[in-house]
């Protein structure tokens, strides 16, 4: 009966994942490998194609202008693109929040602890969720409508060119583990339920929830990847890399705030990054 409960939990989290995350790994890999029929992404590889693609970027998500009624969009391709990324990130935070709420027991935790878990977990989750969208040559953006090349991102001015390169390095390695969407759903829940986040009031119930999800993940990986040795351990090791990447990412954003005088940081992302590490 215990194993049956763990299987049911895995199914439940997979269903929630499919419900809240619009671009699954299965869809992204189909697009990246050209097996998605008519769904061929627009490729951005230089400034000219970026200009053409900007229309698509802003159709796929709420645009910068909608967030800043009354203020003009800033100059510079980098900043404009950065604002699009922020809008998508803020929307993704909402998706992750809905997913977190679907983890059994999560909404019964102290509300302040729910906030803390999201504050510290959400950027790790967002970075992890970029992996299925990436390959060594570039990344899907805008819900899979656009493929932006890694070389183009590297050609942007500093520090914008430094923002995604570590995520590519991580993703290429992480993708070799070949997790599917059902594995990812459990792994995301494990990350969210980290009992060692600073400032948590009531650690015990969080650790208990995480323990159950960990058991479910371990069992699920054994069944789903019978030939992949030590996969559970390898997956958990990635949590250390994710934490480091978040620290580096937040540092880059702080640097941007100092160097880009006109920079606007989305209020939700500001809230998350303030006093994070």
């Amino acid at each position: 009966p215990e194993a049956a409960d763990l299987r049911a939990l895995a199914r439940h989290l997979y269903e929630a994942y499919l419900k809240y995350f619009p671009l699954t790994k299965a869809k992204a890999r189909a697009i990246l490998s050209g097996k998605s029929g008519d769904n061929v992404p627009f490729v951005i590889h230089d400034i000219k194609s970026l200009m053409e693609g900007e229309q698509l970027i802003n159709n796929g998500q709420t645009s910068f202008q909608e967030h800043n009624i009354g203020s003009d969009p800033p100059d510079g391709v980098e900043l404009r693109f950065f604002y699009s990324c922020q809008s998508r990130s803020a929307e993704a935070v909402r998706e992750v929040t809905e997913f977190a709420k679907s983890i059994p027991g999560f909404v019964n935790l102290d509300l302040n602890d729910q906030v803390t878990l999201l504050k510290y977990g959400v950027i790790e989750v967002l970075i992890l969720m970029m992996s299925p969208l990436m390959n060594k040559d570039g990344t899907l953006i805008s819900y899979g409508q656009i493929f932006m090349t890694r070389e183009f991102l590297k050609s942007l001015r500093k520090p914008f060119c430094q923002m995604l390169e570590p995520k590519f390095d991580f993703s290429v390695k992480f993708n070799t583990l070949e997790l599917d969407d059902s594995d990812m759903a459990l792994f995301l829940a494990v990350i969210i339920l980290s009992g060692d986040r600073p400032g948590l009031l009531n650690v015990k119930p969080i650790e208990q929830l995480q323990e159950t999800v960990l058991h479910s993940l371990e069992l699920h990986l054994k069944i789903n990847h019978p030939d992949s040795l030590q996969l559970f351990a390898k997956v958990l090791q990635k949590m250390t890399d994710l934490r480091q990447m978040v620290t580096d990412h937040v540092q880059l954003i702080q640097l941007l705030k100092k160097t880009e005088v006109d920079m606007f940081l989305h209020p939700l992302l500001q809230e998350i990054m303030k006093d994070l590490y």
């Binding site: 709420t62 909608e66 929040t97 509300l111």
Partner: peptide, 20 residues
């Protein structure tokens, strides 16, 4: 609580992308 009011709002009710 004031410091994380959008997160609180997201946790307590479903907020649409426009409200974000």
């Amino acid at each position: 609580k004031e410091k994380h009011k959008i997160l609180h709002r997201l946790l307590q009710n479903s907020t649409s992308p426009v409200e974000l």
